[in-house]
Design a protein around this nucleic acid. Structure first.
Lengths: 226, 226
DNA sequence: CTTCTTTTTGACAATTTTGTGACAACGGAA
DNA sequence: TTCCGTTGTCACAAAATTGTCAAAAAGAAG
């Protein structure tokens, strides 16, 4: 059973939320106070956190930021009032995963919560090192060795390789790679991806023409196998 | 490829948007007129809809509300002028999924569009694997096995098979397949479908002449059974 | 400001997939 | 059975995608 913590000071809304989550078989924890909510969130592990922005004693933004800097990685969904600046909610500095503007539909909220949980479920354990074939990679130290020879990978090559290794076996499209590895502020051609694949292959594969690890899935993308 | 419909009457902005979306490999449809935009949105399936608020003949708010009451569930992102009331945009009655206030950055817009699409993708849980007879298919990994032999399906074959598996037991016409699997402005003839069926049968059936899973329904189409 | 490295782009060839047409085989109706 | 429209099958052409190289552009380091 999934645990949800709801921090919301409007009692009417809170009651509605609690009922809805219970109906969906969640275990529900609540707080109407910001600071208290924060300490519950920090202490008790819950699977998802619903945070109102306007709260007594400590607002939702601060709770969110604080939790993230405490290393809490629980998915957070923020509830913003109409006037509030939602732009900032999504930003990295804040660390919320989604937001909803009041008034919102409960159905939509539940849908988003489920989406977050699902995403959470296949969150990839951060890979710190990997071995495949005669290659050993340490992503933390940014070092790679093939056989007895040191490999000289660039930062982006490490990122890309890590992304693949963390998703071993899955087909990844070029566009997904551009979105996730390059990020949406850069928009290189999908051709760029091919070139990185090529150069990675030249380094980690014994024969770049007959790759054993970084495979091409024609018209779909690439996939990594150990 | 994702399809976006942009309804915006400012030609300069429109051009910028079109270029940016094309650069991101979207298929772009446009309208500068509200009423026309509405009917395009209603008729043509697109994956995401960008709506300006101020439009000739029918404003963005009304388009949005009307589409929702028509049962259209496409994600909608509204572009509001600075003075306009953003409160109303988000509300349930209206049914928009996100908004951006002019002037906005194209990058931000693209980022939000991608977020909406991703959220959308999360909502319909897609079938990720399937078993029938002695065949096992993993759509995410694009791998298929029959008995102990690996099957080598092309991307389109996977798509087609997935479409059938998700509609197990339903009779599907060739035209429906062309629309849904091949895409919106399906060029190919209905003959193409038969050929794909053939090649799928050769791969997944023990005897392509006596199919057990991909059945022909004469004059109607095909249907998949487990 | 140079020099070196990394990143991105563009061109072209190599490869794979996709679409088409011909013809045979088949199903159903008269 | 005979006929006509539908489907199965094959081989080939057209179209798209990917591999590869080299050079331009952008960044870092000195």
């Amino acid at each position: 059973m999934k645990r949800v913590l709801i921090v919301e000071d409007d009692k009417a809304i809170l009651r509605g939320l609690v009922d809805s989550f219970k109906a969906e078989h969640f275990e529900v924890e609540t707080s109407t106070d910001g600071e208290l909510g924060y300490s519950i969130a920090k202490k008790n592990k819950c699977d998802i956190l619903i945070l109102d922005v306007m709260l007594p004693r400590m607002n939702g933004f601060d709770i969110c930021r604080q939790l993230r800097s405490d290393g809490v990685k629980t998915p957070i969904l923020m509830l913003t009032g109409k006037g509030e600046e939602i732009d900032k909610v999504m930003g990295l500095e804040l660390g919320a995963d989604d937001y909803l503007t009041k008034p919102f539909s409960i159905k939509e909220l539940l849908a988003r919560v489920k989406a977050l949980l699902r995403r959470q479920a296949d969150i990839h354990t951060e890979m710190t090192e990997a071995t495949f074939g005669d290659v050993y990679v340490d992503f933390k130290k940014q070092e790679a060795v093939k056989g007895k020879r040191k490999l000289d990978l660039t930062a982006k090559e490490f990122q890309l390789l890590k992304y693949f290794v963390e998703r071993e076996g899955d087909v990844i499209s070029r566009n997904q790679l551009l979105d996730d590895v390059w990020g949406y502020q850069a928009m290189p051609t999908t051709r760029t991806v091919d070139n990185y694949i090529l150069s990675l292959r030249k380094k980690i594969e014994s024969s770049s023409a007959k790759p054993k690890h970084l495979l091409t899935i024609h018209t779909a993308g690439y996939k990594f196998v150990r």
